[in-house]
Design a protein around this nucleic acid. Structure first.
Lengths: 203, 203
DNA sequence: TAACTTATTAAACATTGTTTAATTTGTCAA
DNA sequence: TTGACAAATTAAACAATGTTTAATAAGTTA
């Protein structure tokens, strides 16, 4: 089945995704062009369309791969921590470190969140939320399933938002203290409120 | 000074910004092209470059305008609420409603946050944060300036993050309950933790 | 060995941002 | 009033992208 090079469709996909990583890792502001991607794989532009339906399709699959790795990192955190709160810190750290160490990859992730994702991507995101929910449930038994689900999304949104602000911090900010402690403070403060049995907010 | 049409540079700027609004309001997924913008103003593409240095420059000024209006809305909220917590709810609502009623405009805002902003834009953002800080300070006198500043950014990041997730919710979410109450719950929970004198998080 | 299949490419096309040279329009001085 | 100048506006060109298509080349198989 293989021709000129011994690369199956699957291998071509991996090559392309790898090439995208190389591009955004070398320069987080670089634009991922079809020609740059295929040049990085040692192919020409047409080959990309043999394996992906469009550039957006490629980037979608890149993001799916990123999310899979994130989920894997977070699972590792769950295994290595005992305290639920410590686990949540560790999981948040996984996300934060992705943004800090691989800003280019993380920007792909946050830039394409707006576009419609396919079912696979959504499922990975769901599995990530499930990890968070499990810890929240252990931490605040007084909360019901719905409250847990909402809290997981709110908390994760907040962490994501901090990464966004951090990524776009132009040094010029009046308050600049590091995003790492910002995340820690956020989780701590939020959980403190979440665990106490305060009354429901006004409607 | 005016020639063919009686449009000063300033008027051309306003026309262009208005045209961008029209484009993204009519279809939040529409791409804002130079030709579409100028066609909407009744000019041709070259005129745009008489007034803006690039498309990015135009979008930057569009975002500045959006932020100005947001700040104005939030100031209005401050005037019309007495309780600090109610004021914070009202301010968050301003941002949330922008995302809900003008998703196209809001996407411009969140999409271009990553690009380096000019000083003017940063100043507007700072003034918005100042409004939030003022209410937080009234609410939690035990917190010092730095804590207030961090809390304002964390809280706002969280609200922004919720809007992001909401904007990209593909109906398919297992938990879908409305973002409005998500924001309310988040603020309530966060403030509950912020106002109590819990210990500092572990380092 | 020859026909066929298909991976791969080179070239073409459409759409964008941006620049440039031409054109049109108003202003002002003689 | 008219002719020269300045400025606004445009049409056309250019480069970089995503995408498609027709040609080419390499392997497979009868």
């Amino acid at each position: 089945m293989a021709r000129r090079n011994d690369h199956s469709r699957e291998q071509l996909k991996d090559l392309a995704i790898e090439s995208v990583f190389n591009i955004v890792d070398s320069d987080e502001c670089a634009t991922v062009t079809a020609r740059a991607v295929t040049q990085g794989m040692g192919y020409t532009v047409g080959t990309l369309y043999l394996v992906f339906s469009s550039i957006d399709d490629l980037l979608l699959q890149v993001n799916a791969e990123l999310l899979k790795r994130l989920h894997s990192d977070m699972q590792f955190a769950v295994k290595n921590e005992v305290d639920p709160q410590a686990t949540l810190f560790a999981m948040a750290k996984c996300y934060f470190l992705l943004a800090e160490h691989y800003p280019g990859r993380w920007k792909l992730l946050s830039r394409h969140r707006e576009k419609l994702g396919d079912e696979e991507t959504d499922n990975i995101v769901e599995s990530i939320f499930t990890l968070v929910e499990t810890e929240l449930a252990r931490l605040a038994p007084i909360r019901n399933n719905k409250e847990i689900a909402i809290a997981a999304r709110a908390l994760w949104s907040a962490i994501h938002g901090i990464c966004v602000v951090n990524a776009s911090s132009h040094l010029r900010h009046r308050v600049h203290y590091d995003a790492r402690s910002l995340v820690r403070t956020l989780i701590h403060t939020y959980l403190s409120g979440f665990m106490s049995d305060n009354i429901a907010p006004p409607t």
